[in-house]
């Protein structure tokens, strides 16, 4: 069981990094803004699916936290790009993230009850791990605007919190 989850996380991480590496050079600020925003939108969609499907109080509360936090961070990101007059630019990493997320949404859509809850929370652990890893090793070091870097750093701490929160929920579901 542990191995399945770990390998899912590793797969998610390597998908993220290989997509980013495929571009060769480090991502630009407009691309980084797009990737970070997309990562938030994906988690909001996953949470909304969970809110429609779950009957678990704890999973529901977790999903509500995800919607609230990621909307708050994305709103801040939109305000910042407006202020900096940066236009977020679509890129391979964003596209890969969205494609994987759509597949995951379809896969989870077929599950019900406890099986859904477990799959959703396990994916939340893996997804936040992957995003945190991408932020730490690629997006934050590549960001050149200090305000963008700052927002990404705050985002990283928030998402690390989500990762630990998801791990707790996962442990409680057993």
């Amino acid at each position: 069981m542990m191995f399945v989850r770990l390998s899912a996380a590793i797969a998610a991480v390597s998908l993220l990094s290989s997509a980013a590496l495929a571009q060769g050079a480090k991502p630009t600020d407009p691309q980084i803004a797009h990737i970070a925003y997309t990562a938030g939108v994906i988690d909001i969609k996953a949470a909304k699916q969970a809110l429609n499907k779950t009957r678990s109080k704890e999973v529901k509360a977790f999903a509500q936290d995800m919607v609230r936090d990621h909307e708050a961070v994305n709103k801040q990101a939109l305000d910042l790009v407006k202020k900096l007059k940066v236009k977020p630019e679509d890129n391979d990493t964003s596209r890969t993230l969205s494609k994987n997320a759509a597949d995951k949404l379809a896969e989870l859509g077929k599950l019900k009850g406890a099986a859904f809850d477990k799959a959703y929370i396990d994916n939340e652990v893996a997804y936040h791990k992957a995003v945190d890893n991408a932020l730490e090793t690629q997006l934050i070091p590549s960001a050149s605007n200090p305000e963008l870097k700052n927002l990404l750093q705050t985002g990283l701490k928030i998402f690390q919190g989500h990762e630990q929160h998801a791990e707790q929920v996962a442990a409680n579901l057993k």
Binding site: K157, G161, Q164, Q168
Partner: peptide
Amino acid sequence: YCRFHPNM
């Protein structure tokens, strides 16, 4: 701690 962000 913070229930939403247990790293706090």
